[in-house]
Amino acid sequence: MEQINLKKIPIYILSRKYYVPESSTIITAMEYAGFKLKKGVGCREGFCGACATIYRLPGDYKLHGGLGCQTVVQENMQIVQIPYVPNPKAIYDLEQLEPDPQVFLEYYPETFKCLSCNTCTKICPQDIQVMDYVQAVVRGDIEKVSELSFDCLSCGLCAARCPAEITQFNVALLARRIYGKYLSKKGKFVETRIKEIEEGKYEEGYKELANMPLEDLKKKYFERDLNFDIT
């Protein structure tokens, strides 16, 4: 086997020094260092938000947040994963809610403790203006919250850092749900598709897929058409 000689750089994982290949991501570096990741890793594509990591760089007092699968290691970087942040989840029935700003006060009143310190925005690995959407919650602008928080992966770093102990990402989720259900413009295609499903148009197709050998299914999946029209 061909030996690839990658340059190794030192990083600190949970304060211990490891030499890892440069240009690897935090996740691959951790695996290289021998960590078996059962938690703190997921899709490896930057979509699931399971691999939230905080780190500091030499000579820099700032605490950074990043997704382990998207962030490339740097020399003498100190890292620790924050795979999960305990968070209160409000129980609500979307069907029963009204698109009224008062829902935030009802389900997540602590949001109104926001101090506008912007610590959440500073740590967000998705570069979301978290404070701005929290402020949109405070003033009851559901649409703005949805728009600003759209890229949120619920990794939880904002909630871990917040001095007002707000769970920003859950509040944003509530806003996006309300927005999606009650306020956003509805595309015609959804209606059409639902009707088609109800009329059983896809029954045959589902059956076919369910009975397909795994290899064929994989092939079909990767060859699928991604350019369907959603307007």
Partner: peptide
């Protein structure tokens, strides 16, 4: 305790009251 604000009050209280009370009492 935030939990103890009556549901009825959460529906009608203006934000300014809630924000102020949080700053003074928590």
């Amino acid at each position: 305790d935030i939990k103890n604000i009556a549901e009825e009050d959460r529906k009608i209280l203006p934000q300014v009251a809630i924000v102020a009370a949080f700053r003074k009492f928590t």
